[in-house]
């Protein structure tokens, strides 16, 4: 999907002036969801920032049909809703729009259950790497060393879990990573995902200005830097084919990557890092690249 087609879409989805923080990545992601599949989508939203962004009754900050549901229930609600549509031959794309906590932590069993059943739903995990709606507490997907209000001085001491790879190993037909800084890539991934019957998941990198402590006008810049430094890798698994997306491909070569400190130094949550810590994060990123490249090789020889 070209940027022109995205821009021409008349679907509003996200209403200007809704209660999202300035520079909120969820608004950007939801806008792209609306502009690609808005007319056929029903959103299922577990507790999280989007519960607020959706607005205060009787008004609405989002123009979608939405079921707001308890934190740990979203994928199961989506499965039931899709079953209801299917049992009566009705159309509708059921999309779980979830934060990282709702998908990878408290809602993980539910997510895993829906994936195992290969239920015909799309789950978009808008990952801002902490419990942001409750005020920036560390989650299972918070990066190593990041400062949060529950890891306020030395930072998170545990690893970030990779929810996209975990879901890939559920043997579902479609898993991809995406970034709010690359709208056409995200739009294309959404379109490809919903054309497939079965369980689909898109893990969306969503830098959060208040949570990561950067200025609200830097959301896109930071999301882009995550790609350019190799810290976030765009890839797509589609029915047996695993490919690093073109926007990330270049950075498989470490010499092409921007220095990691450029990305980290813009974020208050990493202000306390020593040079050794930065080298530590860099090693983790290198390891991740090795794994993703191996996976790409593995799936290409398999075919």
């Amino acid at each position: 999907m070209s940027i022109q087609r995205l821009a021409l879409s008349k679907f509003r989805g996200v209403i200007p002036g809704n209660p999202a923080c300035s520079g909120c990545p969820h608004n950007i992601g939801l806008k792209i969801v609306g502009k690609t599949i808005g007319d056929k989508v029903i959103l299922v939203v577990p507790a999280g920032c989007t519960s607020i962004i959706s607005g205060y009754w009787p008004r609405s900050g989002l123009e979608f049909p939405i079921l707001h549901v308890p934190f740990a229930s979203a994928a199961a609600v989506a499965s039931g809703l899709k079953a209801a549509l299917e049992s009566r031959g009705e159309n509708g794309v059921v999309v779980v729009w979830s934060g990282d906590g709702g998908a990878a932590d408290i809602g993980f069993a539910t997510l895993s259950g829906a994936a195992v059943r290969n239920d015909d739903i799309l789950v978009i995990v808008s990952d801002n790497e902490a419990y942001m709606n409750t005020g920036v507490q560390a989650s299972g997907t918070t990066t190593w060393k990041a400062l949060t209000t529950t890891s306020p001085v030395i930072g998170k001491t545990e690893e970030k879990k990779d929810i996209a790879l975990i879901m890939l190993l559920h043997k579902v037909p479609y898993v991809a990573t995406a970034s709010i800084a690359y709208p056409t890539d995200l739009a294309e991934k959404i379109e490809r995902a919903v054309s497939i019957r079965g369980f689909k998941l898109i893990h969306l990198h969503s830098p959060c200005p208040p949570g990561w402590r950067f200025d609200a006008d830097k959301t896109i810049a930071i999301a882009k830097l995550a790609i350019e430094t190799g810290a976030w890798i765009l890839w797509e698994y589609n029915n047996g084919s695993f490919k690093i997306s073109p926007q990330s491909k270049l950075y498989a070569d470490k010499s092409k990557r921007k220095p990691l400190s450029e990305y980290l130094k813009m974020q208050g949550r990493f202000m306390h890092l020593t040079d050794e810590d930065i080298r530590g994060i860099e090693n983790k990123i290198d390891e991740n690249w090795k794994l993703i490249l191996e996976l790409e090789k593995y799936y290409s020889t398999k075919r």
Binding site: S73, A78, G80, L81, L85, A109
Partner: peptide, 27 residues
């Protein structure tokens, strides 16, 4: 003739029928 969904927990058992009921089905 009915959709039968094998879930992974009771929390999800009720969540599934919540979703299906919101979609208009008898559950």
């Amino acid at each position: 003739k009915a959709e039968y969904i094998r879930v992974e927990s009771e929390h999800s058992a009720l969540a599934v029928v919540y979703g299906a009921s919101a979609g208009g089905s008898r559950v």
